[in-house]
Simulated scan of single mutants.
Amino acid sequence: MTNPETPHAQYTAGTKETLHASLDRMRDAVLWKLEGLDDSELRRPLTPSGTSLLGLVKHLGSVEYGWFVSAFGGEVEPLWFDPYSDEDMRADQGETTQQIIDFYGRARAAADRTIRERSLDDLGRPDWRGEAVSLRWVLVHMIEETARHAGHMDIVRELIDGAMGDRRPGS
């Protein structure tokens, strides 16, 4: 989660810190969308494509591992699903809600290690893509990806119980 002692540090920080803080804000919004819902609500598909809150969290964990960890030579934990199919978008392979939330937390922590240990100009090579990408590009891409799915989650959450927004009420 974003450091509560410096919630606005990204306003004056360097480029890397600003990008990381922006990603953290979107990650926190993703987790907030899960709060207060039961397991069936978290798994409820509310679009024709089957989008659910928990499925989106699982997908985001998968892509954090792929872009930040695997692409930069880090070790990704063994996955119980195929990240190159729609299995990473569905929460129906027998996993528990806590398993998916914990997976996202571990992926986020592993990604944070890469962000801390590398410079923005360091290059990674995603095995599914073939061309090199800078950590700077990956940070921007993952802010986009996480914000996009946080927006999906905002709509799904509103359909479930009317809760809206990118942060907890009163924060």
Rank of each mutant, 00 (worst) to 15 (best):
V30K: 08
T96V: 13
E145I: 07
D88E: 15
L46E: 00
E35K: 02
R136G: 07
D28T: 03
Y104K: 03
M26E: 11
N3D: 15
L46P: 00
V140E: 08
A110Q: 06
G50R: 03
D86N: 14
H149S: 05
M164P: 04
D38F: 15
S70N: 12
A111D: 04
G61H: 01
A109V: 11
W32D: 00
V63W: 10
G124E: 02
Y84T: 14
S119P: 06
P126W: 12
Q10V: 10
P83D: 06
H149F: 12
T6Y: 11
G73T: 12
A21I: 07
L34H: 05
V76T: 09
L37W: 03
D38E: 14
S119G: 14
A91Q: 04
T146P: 01
Y65D: 09
E64T: 11
L46A: 03
F72S: 02
E64L: 11
D154G: 13
R168Y: 00
P83T: 06
R168Q: 02
R129E: 15
L46R: 00
F103Q: 04
E95T: 09
I100W: 04
T6N: 14
D161P: 09
L79M: 11
T96N: 11
R118W: 02
V30M: 12
A107N: 02
L42W: 03
R108M: 13
H20V: 15
T47D: 05
L54C: 14
D154F: 06
D112E: 11
D154P: 05
L79C: 03
K58F: 09
H149K: 03
G124A: 06
D38A: 08
S119Y: 04
G151H: 02
F68Y: 09
N3H: 13
S119V: 07
A163L: 11
M164C: 09
G151A: 02
D112G: 08
E35T: 12
K33F: 03
M1W: 13
I160Q: 05
P78G: 10
S134C: 09
A132E: 15
V30N: 08
D24V: 13
W80Y: 12
H141Q: 14
R43T: 05
L120R: 02
A9W: 03
G170F: 00
A111I: 06
Y104A: 06
T47M: 07
D39R: 08
P169F: 00
W137L: 14
